[in-house]
């Protein structure tokens, strides 16, 4: 009986597994397997070269820049986006007259395609006089800023656009969580004489932990894998100032034709993301318990 049931459970898994194994895992693994070879688009023959690709990775400055940028991007995105979204959600959970319109406005950027967002913001942040952002700054009497052309600033400009795009999304998840919390809890706190700040710190925030976990884990993974917004806004430039791991990976694979080498980068990167995610989950769990 239980064996029959166990078999049925596995049967339910099979269709998803078929798709996943054939169209996801197989292409990934067959690429990763090539990380020990000199697979190149310039050559028809492939040779086994052991760990050479992996050794080479640590001497590649651009790869190191990409790793640094991806981490900076992911960490800042995760912190800023959630630090803004939580208070926003708490505020919009209150009985405000315009709350529906406000929610809609904050959420709207999330539905735009990254491609369009990239091009739109390239115009907005243009360093020419008619770039709307700089025009606005100069109206306010502030000098113009070289948003995407200054190598020290460009990555943060990109992050700014992404905070703009995704904060509303995180906010909606927090809102959803808040709506599941019984209002009586807040009333009880109010009667006990707790002020707004105390209520937020002692009651709201702990109850938001499940959605904080989901939001931070997903934006961390997504941040480390960032590609399309950088591709459409800066192409990794100026120089290599905004290169992310995935932009470097594609460049090594296709522009330089070094597929084996790029595969090695892909393998290491996947392991890295996995470790980060597991650490993060463990950390959040500890917080949840306490």
């Amino acid at each position: 009986m239980t064996r029959k049931r166990e078999f049925a459970f596995l049967l339910l898994i099979v269709p998803a597994l078929l798709f996943y194994f054939i169209f996801y895992l197989y292409p990934v693994i067959s690429t990763f397997a090539h990380s020990f070879t000199d697979w190149s688009l310039l050559q028809r023959s492939i040779h086994f070269i052991g760990l050479d690709n992996y050794r080479q990775l640590f001497n590649d400055d651009v790869v190191l820049t990409g790793i640094k940028n991806s981490i900076v991007y992911a960490v800042i995105m995760t912190i800023v986006q959630n630090a803004l979204a939580v208070p926003l959600a708490v505020a919009l959970d209150k009985n405000l007259r315009s709350k529906n319109v406000l929610r809609m406005v904050f959420f709207a950027p999330a539905v735009l395609s990254p491609l369009v967002v990239g091009f739109l913001w390239s115009y907005i942040m243009s360093s020419l006089d008619y770039g709307p952002l700089n025009q606005m700054l100069s109206h306010l009497g502030l000098g113009s800023v070289n948003w995407l052309g200054e190598p020290k600033l460009a990555l943060y400009s990109v992050i700014l656009t992404q905070v703009w795009q995704w904060t509303g999304w995180a906010m909606v998840i927090y809102l959803a969580n808040l709506q599941g919390i019984s209002k009586e809890l807040f009333e009880a706190a109010h009667i006990d004489g707790a002020n707004g700040w105390k209520t937020f710190w002692n009651i709201t925030l702990p109850l938001l932990v499940p959605s904080i976990t989901i939001n931070t884990v997903l934006s961390m993974i997504g941040g480390l894998k960032v590609f399309d917004i950088i591709f459409s806004m800066t192409s990794g430039g100026p120089g290599h100032a905004t290169e992310s791991i995935v932009t470097v990976l594609l460049q090594r694979a296709f522009t330089d034709s070094q597929l084996g080498y790029a595969s090695a980068l892909g393998v290491l990167f996947s392991l890295f993301v996995m470790v980060v995610t597991l650490l993060q989950l463990r950390l959040m769990k500890r917080w949840e318990v306490s």
């Binding site: 996801y24 895992l25 990934v28």
Partner: peptide, 21 residues
């Protein structure tokens, strides 16, 4: 575990075998 591992892979790397498939 095999399915969840898919979350962390930069999928762009796997385009060539996928295209072939």
């Amino acid at each position: 575990v095999a399915v969840i591992a898919g979350l962390v892979v930069p999928f762009q790397i796997a385009l060539i075998p996928l295209y072939k498939l």
